[in-house]
Deep mutational scan, measured.
Amino acid sequence: MDALKSAGRALIRSPSLAKQSWGGGGRHRKLPENWTDTRETLLEGMLFSLKYLGMTLVEQPKGEELSAAAIKRIVATAKASGKKLQKVTLKVSPRGIILTDNLTNQLIENVSIYRISYCTADKMHDKVFAYIAQSQHNQSLECHAFLCTKRKMAQAVTLTVAQAFKVAFEFWQVSKEEKEKRDKASQEGGDVLGARQDCTPPLKSLVATGNLLDLEETAKAPLSTVSANTTNMDEVPRPQALSGSSVVWELDDGLDEAFSRLAQSRTNPQVLDTGLTAQDMHYAQCLSPVDWDKPDSSGTEQDDLFSF
């Protein structure tokens, strides 16, 4: 819950932080000083300027060897085509990944977070970031790969997607708890209302004896509580940590079903599988986004697919 609360507080303090972009060759504004600060901008989305290598189908939802083989196929196909790589912007948030063309600003792909089953910074092609997700059109699994400016960037994108998945799962947990509370309150309110109706004398007997209905007592009954809980029953509950912020979080049926399955089948359902080692994760978390744009010590960066 700490990640969720800190993310909400950060967004309320400075929503404009989320509009910064990394990996864009110096076009961005001043960047936060450390990885923790940038992680807090996830709610509205972190932007990464990358190059799209392509996509291939895979048979399993996750796995280092599986993704490595898929990336190898994608890279080989991209090299064989001889075409310049498409420059894209990857927007990562707890909602998922939005992929747009840098030149036309046209939407290429919009992947809900619950469809993503794996992401990684490839070991062999260490400047490549990739994720595996279920197609929104059918049940097939797709591996999408992107060329980053350097290994640090690939690791940073991988960690960002993993963190977005974690925050999304926490949102789901909060929403589920809130819905259970509202359902319980609604049920209790309905029981109270039913009890009051059972003990209320029939209207005919009131008229016969000349008694008047006590409207004041009726007004004191917990009807307002019942209506408050039943009027918006169809509205999706939102985490309290975000009250007053500009973010509107809505959970669709697909996300609810997917996270429910994860909660039942996995020990740590909030953790998205990645190909990063503990050492890689520690190294990337210690980086400032400013470091992502620094040239690798191995030599001059080449803006070309064939540089790796």
Rank of each mutant, 00 (worst) to 15 (best):
L50P: 15
E188F: 03
T158R: 01
P222Y: 11
L43G: 15
D101F: 10
L53H: 12
E235W: 13
H282N: 09
D252A: 13
K127A: 09
V290H: 07
K150T: 11
A130T: 09
H144S: 14
S227L: 12
H282S: 06
K127D: 11
L57G: 04
Q240Y: 10
A241F: 09
K72Q: 10
A228I: 08
S260D: 06
L262P: 02
N110H: 01
L53I: 05
D234A: 13
M124Q: 10
D101P: 15
A154G: 03
E178L: 02
A241D: 11
N138W: 14
P239Q: 12
A78M: 06
R95I: 03
V226P: 05
G63I: 08
K72V: 04
I132A: 05
Y114C: 15
L90C: 11
H125K: 05
R39P: 05
F146C: 13
Q86C: 08
D198Q: 02
K19M: 01
Q60F: 14
L147V: 08
A69L: 15
I12C: 08
C286W: 00
R95V: 11
S297Y: 00
L255W: 10
D253A: 02
S21E: 09
S245D: 11
T104W: 07
T89V: 11
K127I: 03
D2Q: 09
L57R: 13
V75C: 09
N138S: 11
L4Y: 11
A78L: 13
L99V: 14
K72P: 10
L42H: 12
K166C: 14
S205I: 09
G23P: 11
R266S: 01
A263W: 12
S140E: 13
E59I: 11
W22G: 02
P94C: 15
L4N: 00
Q279R: 03
L193F: 01
L107N: 13
Q187G: 04
E178K: 15
G54T: 10
Q60R: 07
D234P: 02
R95Y: 09
D296Q: 00
D303F: 03
K179V: 12
M55S: 06
F171K: 13
A145D: 15
V290L: 04
E188P: 03
D273Y: 06
K30C: 13
T231Y: 00
T149V: 11
V88T: 14
K87T: 14
A68E: 11
W22E: 12
G299P: 07
L66K: 10
S297M: 11
D101W: 08
Y114P: 12
P289G: 08
T100H: 09
D2G: 04
K19F: 02
D253K: 06
S224A: 03
L262Q: 06
K87G: 10
L50E: 05
K5T: 01
C119S: 08
D291Y: 00
V161D: 01
A10N: 12
T77A: 04
V271W: 03
E177V: 13
D303V: 07
T36P: 09
D198Y: 07
V174F: 02
I12W: 07
G254C: 15
N110M: 05
K79Q: 04
C148Y: 04
S67G: 15
L47F: 10
G96D: 05
L11N: 15
K72E: 07
K30I: 14
A278C: 08
S67E: 15
L66G: 12
V236R: 03
A121N: 14
E33F: 13
K19W: 12
G23T: 15
A130M: 00
S175F: 00
V157Q: 06
D293P: 12
Q20Y: 03
K181L: 07
V192G: 14
G82C: 06
S81F: 01
K84S: 15
D2Y: 11
T267D: 07
E59G: 12
T267M: 08
E250Q: 08
G194Q: 02
Q302L: 15
G244L: 00
V174G: 07
T267C: 06
R13M: 13
K294P: 00
S227F: 06
D280R: 15
S260P: 01
R9C: 05
N232P: 06
L66S: 12
Q155W: 04
V111G: 09
L193C: 07
P32Q: 02
V111T: 12
G299I: 01
D214P: 08
V192A: 11
D291P: 08
Q197V: 07
T200C: 04
A195H: 11
M46L: 15
C119R: 09
E188S: 12
G23Q: 04
T231S: 07
D291W: 08
A18I: 00
R151P: 01
Q20A: 05
G244R: 13
D101K: 10
S307Y: 01
G254E: 09
A219K: 08
D214V: 10
T41Q: 04
G25F: 05
E250G: 11
S49V: 15
Y118G: 02
E188T: 05
I113H: 11
S288T: 00
L212K: 06
K150D: 10
L223A: 00
Q86H: 14
Y283I: 00
V271F: 12
L66V: 02
S67P: 13
V290D: 05
T89E: 15
L251R: 09
K62E: 06
D122C: 10
T218K: 08
V128F: 14
A241L: 03
A168L: 05
K181H: 15
